[in-house]
Amino acid sequence: MSGDSQVKAEFFIENPAELPSVAQTLKEKGYDHVISLSAVDYPKSNEIHLVIHVSSYTKKDIEPKIFEIRVKLNRDNPRVPSLVKIWPSAEFQEREAYEMFGIVFENHPDLRNILLDPEEFSGVHPLRKDYIVQVEDIMLKLKEEVKNGGNK
């Protein structure tokens, strides 16, 4: 199966300020577009990891085909420089990470919600682990169970 290569396929960044320079280096290497930009929430260690997958259209022989960048962010105030200047393809995905995780992308040209209603979801970030999905199937559940939050 493809994807598991011996070449180092990821880079972990402890200090978010270093992200633009890492991104610039990767872009010069040939990684010209962002496939995915999102995050994973780790409430236990009070961290949010910004996870970026980049790939190349122009360089056929690039290895690995998909490179992963992980940036450790402080969960209480996740801020990171925007990558839109380096990779314009990140624009909408940064907006999504902003609404879903509350990550603020500094110098993003147009940072606002993209999928969620800005009024209903102001200050609420549904993909964080502490956001609990309310179960609505009251026909099957006792009222107490619904009150207690349903599925996590």
Partner: peptide, 23 residues
């Protein structure tokens, strides 16, 4: 390339890229 467009839209703009071939 800059906008990260994918699929037939990218190939109609001259990007020779298809996951079926690349991976």
């Amino acid at each position: 390339i800059d906008l990260g467009v994918t699929g037939p839209n990218a190939r109609a703009s001259g990007i020779d890229f298809d996951v079926r071939v690349e991976e």
